[in-house]
Every structure is written in structure tokens, then in C-alpha cells.
């Protein structure tokens, strides 16, 4: 329907809407570009008292380090402040959260999609209510029992909590995805003598990957972006990246050290960029999948 009469527009309208989109693109991307650029400067340039153009040309950076770009901030964050340890922790937490929540979610989502009973609907409704719970209220429920049972501070605790918080969304996504896989497929396998689980294992699993990858992306984002759970439930040495960045701000507010946080922020954002670049289509389709089902 690209060039039908219905979509033809007046030049003024085209100019206006294009201008608007360009404005939005600038608003959406400029903060990231600015911070990326600034992370290679010294604090005197990034927060310039004299002239904001200093951040562009690196005037102070040239004076202090002898070049217009410096990796000082990155060195400070990754080496001096042990940011690599947090990055490693984040990787562990994220990988296990994604794997476990997808395993639980595919089984549950499949069951919900194939059960014709009324309680399946109610389970989905309960999941929706659980989805609405602010994470910090749940954390306030965990904290005291976890202290008492010595579960507090360990990475596996954070993983299982994130898996649980993730389940409502995962169930909804995969449920609507499995609804789109024809029932005949697994039912004919069962006619041929498979049990329900065998049918799931041999017939559904090979065709479910597009939906699982999309859901996995969102599980990844939830675990990666989480602050409430990881900040409260992990001990100092098990800290993941996001709470680590927050702690940079609290403890190291002296000249130059704010740049550690800037560098850490850029480092933590980079994987997300790559993710969007490769999986843009899946993210878009995932966001819409839930919507189309209403």
C-alpha cells in the first residue's frame, strides 16, 4: 500500500513530520553519543566550568594527559575499581536467569496454551497481577528471611529471584506464541503414541525457537537492567554492574572519579547497543506480540 492515493501527503505535512522525526532521533541518540565522546575526556572537560566546547576539543584533556583522548576513565573503572568483577557477575546472573526462566516459561506457557480449562485463564490473570508488583516491595519481603537463612548475598539467590520476577511476563509471551503453533502438530504426535511430554520434546521444541529467542531477549533485558533486586540482595563482592555504578556515585565523589562512573556507564551500555543492532526485528515483534493478543 506504499503509493496509493490514500497515503499521498502534502509537501508541508511531509516536511513537518520529517522534521519531527529528525528531532526525535536527535533527542534519542544525542545523550548516548555525548556520553560516549565525553568518556574519553577528563572530568574538567566533561563537566566544563569554562566553556562547553572544551568537551568537544578536549582542551583540559590535552593539558592533563598530553592527548585529546584518554582512556584514564576506563582504566580507573575496570582496573582500579574492579569493574571487571561486576561485569563477570552480571554475565553469570544474566546467563543463568535467561536459561532457567526460558526453561520454566516454555513448559508453563505450553501448558497454558494447550489447556482448555478455566483455571488456565485464572493463572494468566494472577500472572498479570504479579507482573504489576513493584520489585522493591517483593525485595522488602525477601530481605529478612534471606538474612535469617543465610541466603543473602549469593549470586544464585539473585538468579532465582530474577527468574521468578520474570515468570509472569515470560508466561504471557510464550503462551501467546504457543497459541499460534497449530494444535494438530502435537496432537497428531500423540495419536502416534507419544506422551504429552514426548510430543512437546520432539514436535514443539524444534519449531519454538523464534518465540523463545524473542522472549529470551526480554528476560535478558530484565536481568541486565535490574537495580532493585541486585542492589539489595547481593553482597559487595558479588555486586553486578548496575549497583556497582550506583556505588561509584555514593563513595567516590572526588575529582576525576566521576569519570569512572561515566566510563562504567558507557561500558555497560555497549552490549545493549549490540543487542539492539542484531535483534531489532525480534525486539519489535516481541513488543507487538503481546499487544496484538490484547
Amino acid at each position: 500500500m506504499s503509493a496509493t492515493a490514500a497515503t499521498r501527503r502534502s509537501p508541508a505535512l511531509i516536511a513537518f513530520s520529517t522534521g519531527f522525526v529528525i528531532l526525535w532521533v536527535v533527542l534519542a541518540s544525542f545523550p548516548f553519543l555525548w556520553t560516549l565522546w565525553g568518556s574519553f575526556k577528563v572530568q574538567g572537560d566533561f563537566f566544563s566550568k569554562a566553556d562547553w566546547m572544551n568537551a568537544l576539543w578536549g582542551t583540559r584533556t590535552l593539558v592533563e594527559t598530553g592527548a585529546t583522548f584518554t582512556g584514564q576513565a576506563y582504566h580507573g573503572a575496570w582496573v582500579e575499581q574492579d569493574f571487571w568483577r561486576s561485569a563477570l557477575n552480571t554475565m553469570i546472573v544474566v546467563v543463568f536467569t535467561v536459561i532457567v526462566s526460558l526453561t520454566f516459561g516454555t513448559l508453563g506457557g505450553y501448558a497454558l496454551a494447550r489447556s482448555g480449562f478455566r483455571y488456565a485463564f485464572w493463572l494468566l490473570m494472577i500472572a498479570l497481577i504479579f507482573r504489576a508488583m513493584p520489585h522493591i516491595t517483593l525485595v522488602s519481603g525477601y530481605l529478612l528471611p534471606f538474612f535469617e537463612w543465610n541466603l543473602w548475598g549469593h549470586l544464585p539467590t539473585a538468579v532465582i529471584v530474577l527468574v521468578a520476577i520474570n515468570q509472569p511476563f515470560t508466561l504471557w509471551m510464550l503462551h501467546s506464541f504457543f497459541l499460534n503453533i497449530p494444535k494438530d502438530l502435537d496432537e497428531s504426535a500423540m495419536v502416534d503414541g507419544c506422551t504429552r511430554f514426548q510430543a512437546f520434546r520432539h514436535v514443539i521444541v524444534p519449531v519454538m525457537w523464534p518465540g523463545v529467542i524473542t522472549t529470551g531477549l526480554f528476560s535478558f533485558l530484565l536481568a541486565y537492567n535490574d537495580f532493585a533486586v541486585t542492589a539489595m540482595l547481593l553482597s559487595q563482592e558479588n555486586q553486578t554492574m548496575v549497583p556497582k555504578i550506583a556505588s561509584f556515585l555514593g563513595s567516590t565523589f572526588e575529582e576525576g572519579n566521576v569519570m569512572f562512573a561515566v566510563a562504567a556507564v558507557v561500558s555497560a551500555t555497549a552490549p545493549l547497543f549490540v543487542l539492539v543492532m542484531f535483534f531489532q526485528r525480534q525486539i519489535v515483534s516481541g513488543l507487538t506480540a503481546g499487544a496484538v493478543k490484547g
Partner: peptide
């Protein structure tokens, strides 16, 4: 456009 949403 996705960037502001996807970022932590």
C-alpha cells in the same frame, strides 16, 4: 528510537 527504552 529503541535506545532510550532498552538502556538500563
Amino acid at each position: 528510537s529503541l535506545l532510550p527504552m532498552i538502556v538500563t
